[in-house]
């Protein structure tokens, strides 16, 4: 089942998971009112939860890259393996950058409808 192409997309699968989780949590939080009180630094519980989720997501993706780098793709030809290793590294770096970039807004932007 461990098809090398699955390893190629793994980092972005983690990104997608983080994306869904963060978005769903934000929407749920607004709907049940986690944004209303301030717990510390004039910030609401919802904001803290989101920040924590984003950081966990980032760590998970960086971890994924590290894990991918340690596994070499076991295939017949050397060329094929280096090819797959290269592609999967590029993709993982892209995913890490995307995570940092996409979720930066959780730190200060308006959380819920006015």
């Amino acid at each position: 089942m461990r098809h090398p192409l699955l390893l190629v997309i793994l980092a972005f699968v983690v990104w997608s998971g983080t994306f869904l989780l963060v978005y769903a949590t934000q929407a749920t939080g607004c709907s049940v009112g986690w944004h209303n009180d301030e717990i510390a630094f004039w910030r609401s519980p919802l904001r803290f939860i989101l920040i924590v989720l984003v950081i966990i997501g980032l760590v998970a993706i960086v971890g994924t890259l590290a894990w991918l780098r340690r596994r070499n793709t076991l295939t017949a030809a050397l060329e094929t393996s280096t090819f797959l290793d290269d592609v999967k590294t590029y993709v993982a770096i892209g995913a890490i950058f995307s995570s940092a970039f996409c979720f930066a807004g959780v730190f200060w932007l308006t959380l819920c409808p006015l």
Partner: peptide, 16 residues
């Protein structure tokens, strides 16, 4: 893109 995106975030907050 980074400059533009973050500028747009700030502008969006302002308009909101």
């Amino acid at each position: 893109l980074t400059g533009l995106t973050f500028y747009a975030f700030a502008e969006g907050e302002f308009l909101l």
